[in-house]
Design a protein around this nucleic acid. Structure first.
Lengths: 342, 342
DNA sequence: GCGCCCGTGTACAACGTTATAGAGTCCTGA
DNA sequence: TCAGGACTCTATAACGTTGTACACGGGCGC
């Protein structure tokens, strides 16, 4: 029912191609003709049909962002930036949630909807390096965001997990803490951020000449406030002693902080806590949470640039690229120095 | 480059229409033929081109969700639910952010991208009832989510702002508080949630026979943690006395709580606080925040149902519908009774 | 003055799909 | 036995856009 290019052409008394030419800024059009077309467009309130354009041109102007979960503030804030940045380039963002499930990630990637988008920003959680050949087979331009897949067949942008966690750990060491939890570890994981962040923790300990205590490496299944709280509760029941927490993301840090405080422990006097992600919330909690700013803006900026380069073909014959963003340690109240209560 | 229906037809030695029929579960196909087509699809790894299907059928399977901002946890959690629910119906969600800006909302609504989607879920913040005629002109099926526009030309689903805030206020009254802040008000606003929630606050006061004190009606520009903190800081500087805070959303409540605690005030002993939205975070803060559960799931469920009804035409000649969801008062630590410090 | 190219515009095909219309084939009931 | 329907399948035209190929006129260089 909406007017088409044909209606405009009829009203302006030109061919449809001329209308198309006006729409696409083709240079050789007489000003008078152009104006006639423009007037017709205005009076008819014509809007180009992007579906038809997409079919003809092979470009839909759509980009898909596959993330585990918008509930997680980290991904919500990431999505916010992606939507803003994409829109600045005239792209719209299709959001798909995988829940971190491998099967679901696979079905999303191979599903018909992915044929509809020009490119994919994929934050893998279930898929791993073992699926590299599957990934290589995917035609749609793609940039990987997570850390599950390194040296994969696609461009890859991510944060400095190892160095970031190392710096976080060193920060706690620097304020005099010695018994530090690796909170959120998953020793069985061969790849992924849990693995990398554990590596960073270990490097820092090794650098300080401190032996690792297996009791202090704490697993948290699913990095949410609730699971962080749960794991900390169990840990306190077991009576493990510690004076610092290197939490592998902010949410589990926040869940844990609440449990620590309920148990009568003071932060940072009794236990210092540092998180990872710099979620907005950490600026307003009691106490505010020290954390690692992973460079989200930079991640998005590079990822989207590389994606558009793959889409328009200007990076067609480049091998898969890798980018690690700069990070910053943000010291806040939860790691105020001098509060050592030992 | 990907295989098309023609390739499948050639391989299976049938016409393209037969392939299309198989794809669309047309009943009268000989099992043997169907199997041949299915085999061909499998060997070619064929996936239907949704853009072409969209052009031909007029349905893209895309739904647009227009919200102010994913940074706001309320909208992030809402988006999460929308994405899940939409996907259960085979729809994908396009996310657009308006920043609450009227111009931007208008350009999004009238932009070519909206021609591409089957329906729009629109959470208005800048547009108001004054723009009803503009809204009425929009062809794409749409359901309104905010409260800026009541009795508009489109289906409308929202929470019980007035009753919810009234209940929140009554809850504070019930635990003995008398000097209650209306925190987040915007007295100049003629419509929108700030206005409605202020009404709820007033009703509750009137019901209890308490006169309204203008000093206690506090404006917060933009409902974020930062602005909540800022407004509370100014309020304390002015020396206004109060023993309860009816915050108009959770984020400003959290920002304010932090400032109150910094000032040495105990929650709930000195000041009881209740928020609105039931954002996940409120379950883990210190103290946990009492709030109003606005019935998000129900909002999404009804909105999406109505939207699909408008899309498939089964509700074509119904006048605009209105739905208000059920709410619940969630009492948590920030309003524990008996802590009155007056 | 001739050929050529640039500027301006057009007609038509093509993108990959579904809808329409119809052509066979087979079975049923009278 | 034969009309008539149900079943199975096909050729072709759309959907609204952009790309290709070409037509026409005028100005320019030689």
């Amino acid at each position: 029912m909406p007017p088409t290019i044909h209606d405009v052409a009829r009203l302006a008394e030109v061919s449809i191609k001329t209308v198309s030419n006006v729409l696409n800024d083709y240079p050789h059009i007489r000003p008078a003709t152009k104006q006639r077309v423009l007037d017709a467009i205005a009076t008819l309130d014509y809007t180009p049909n992007l579906t038809a354009r997409g079919l003809r041109s092979g470009r839909t102007g759509l980009v898909s962002l596959i993330i585990p979960d918008l509930r997680n503030a980290y991904f919500a804030e990431l999505a916010d930036i992606v939507v803003r940045a994409a829109e600045a380039q005239g792209l719209s963002v299709l959001i798909a949630q995988s829940n971190g499930d491998r099967e679901r990630e696979l079905s999303l990637l191979s599903g018909p909807r992915m044929q509809m988008v020009d490119g994919i920003l994929f934050s893998a959680l279930g898929l791993s390096a073992a699926d590299n050949d599957l990934l290589a087979r995917i035609r749609t331009p793609m940039v990987l965001l997570g850390e599950r897949i390194l040296d994969g067949p696609k461009d890859h942008v991510t944060m400095r997990n190892v160095e970031g966690t190392q710096a976080a750990t060193e920060h706690l060491l620097s304020i005099g803490r010695r018994r530090l939890l690796a909170f959120g570890a998953d020793p069985e994981q061969g790849t992924g951020s849990a693995r990398l962040r554990l590596d960073g923790y270990r490097w820092a300990l090794a650098g300080a000449g401190i032996a690792e205590d297996p009791d202090l490496v704490v697993r948290v299944v699913g990095w949410y406030r609730s699971t962080g709280a749960q794991s900390m509760r169990r840990l306190l029941e077991r009576g493990v002693e510690f004076d610092g927490v290197v939490a592998f993301n902010d949410l589990i840090a926040l869940g844990a902080m609440r449990v620590l405080q309920d148990a009568g422990l003071r932060i940072p006097e009794d236990v210092a806590v540092i998180g990872f992600d710099d979620v907005d919330e950490t600026r307003y909690t009691l106490p505010t949470l020290s954390t690692i700013d992973p460079g989200r803006e930079e991640i998005v900026e590079v990822a989207l640039r590389w994606l558009t380069e793959r889409i328009d073909g200007s990076a067609a014959d480049l091998p898969p690229r890798d980018h690690l963003t700069a990070f910053r340690v943000l010291q806040r109240e939860s790691t105020t120095p001098g509060g050592d209560g030992s």
